[in-house]
Each structure stands twice: as structure tokens, then as C-alpha cells.
Amino acid sequence: MSVTVVPAAGASATVRRNFWRGVWRVMRRKPSRMVGAAIVAGFALMGIFGPLLYPDPLPRDTQALYAPPSWRHPFGTDFEGTDVLALVVTGARYVLLTAAVTAVITVVLGTAIGLFSGFKRGRWDSVLMRLTDMKLTIPGLPLLLVLSTIWKFTGAIEMGLVLGLLGWGGVARAVRSQTLSLRERGFIEAARGLGLSTGHIVGRELLPSMAPYIAMNTLIAVTGAVYAQVGLFFLGVLPFEANNWGVMLNLAVFGGGALTTTAALPYLLAPLLAILLLTLGIVLVVDAMDEIFNPRLREE
């Protein structure tokens, strides 16, 4: 018997190995996905290592204010003569860190509340969903404006925390409706009938079935957070202490007059291009999520 038995650990290891091989297969199916993954990875690296590439503070070339694009300054320079590319690269950390924190909070909170609400139903469901509705009806931007008057968002993490706490409502609603439909499925009923713990049912049976959904929401939350904070800085409601794409936009438009003269145009376009590229990368990767988390589509 001992020869024929497949050891439990061995079998699950095979499964896991197959998962990553499957992910690789899914990504390779369309070149656009690889491009998307490369872009997202590029931005992640930029966020982590970008600031290390440049001296702090960034050197200023007072001889070349608003310099046009050149080999030395691919996107020109700003009002102080600082290289725009360097600004974009070093500014990525704040933006991406905020976005990551926001995405994590949105998804963790939204998923947890949605799962709990949909699985428990009854009184808890009503209470949590009324709360969610209330949250969804509060307009985000005006609230942020009000908040910014009493609270200075000095750090990226604080910023992400606030955006995350404001953004989980949609995910919670969506996850709840998914849970409600999944809990009627035969395999969930069987798990209940077998007496498996609620932790197991939620964590091992429900959650994996919703993984593509959650992954998609995470990525979309990242773009949402980028827009939100860049927008806030652009409007100038927040003090700019750190280097940031939104600050760049603000200075380009209100300081450099990028909308009326061409001199500051590269200064304006560089952060916009970065945001556009990041969004594009995420959209391209989202396309693969369904296939990655659905074994049938993955193994095909």
C-alpha cells in the first residue's frame, strides 16, 4: 500500500506547481498580456528602486529652465531646471505606494464585508448593506476636500488609508452578490452538509471561486487610486511636500501655463503619459485574470 499511496503533501505541491505553469501559459496566449505584465512590473520596479537612481535632492540646472526635450533631458526640465524624467521616476514611489495601500484596503475590507454579509445573511447582512449604501451615497471628492482642510496627508500610506476607507463600498456590494449566488451552489451545500467549518467554506471554497473577480477589482482599484490622488494634488488642495505626478501636473498647468504656451508642454505630458501607460498595463493584465483563476480555462 505504501508504494501506491500518493502522499498528501506531494499532491498539493504538484497542484501548486501546475498553477504557476498555468499562469505562464495563460500569459503567453496573447502578446498583449505579456506587454501589460512588463509595464506593470516596470512601474513596480520604478516605485521601489526609482528614487535610489537619483541624488536627493535632485540636481537643478538653473541655466535651463523649461528646457525643451533633448538627449540630456528627454522630457525637458521644469521651472527650476530639474530633469522631468527624474521627477517622474522619483515621483512614482509616492503614487504607487498610495495606490497599493488603497487597493489592499479596498479589496480586503470590501471582500471581507461582502463575504460576511452574503454568507451570514439575515440581520448582519441588512446592517452591513445599509452601511455600504450610506458610504456609496457620500460623494468622495468633496469629502476628501473637506478632510484635507483638517488633515495634512503627509505620507503616502496615510493617503492610501483614507482613499481605501472611502472606496470599499462597490467591491463589498459586488462580492456580496457573488457570494449570494455561490452559496446556493451544490458544492457549498455539500461542504455545509459534511460539517466543514465556516472558515474552510469561506476561505477554501468561496474565495477561490471569486478570485478572478477580486483580482480584477484590485487592479481596477489601483488605477482608481492613482486618478484620485493625482487629481487631489492637481487641484492643489494638498500641500506638496513630496515629489508627485499630481504636483507636476499642477505646477505645469498653473505655474508653467502649459495650456497656453508650449514651453511647459513636455512637463505636463510626462506625468500624463506615465498614468496612461500604467492604466494600459493594468487593463492588459486584467484581461488574463479570468483564465488564470479558472482551472478549466487555465489548463486548456
Partner: peptide, 12 residues
Amino acid sequence: YSALNPTRTIHQ
């Protein structure tokens, strides 16, 4: 078809 979790192997 719906009685088995599509994301889990038979072993799991």
C-alpha cells in the same frame, strides 16, 4: 456539475 468546486482538485 455544480456539486464539485471547479477550483479544487478531487484530492483537495
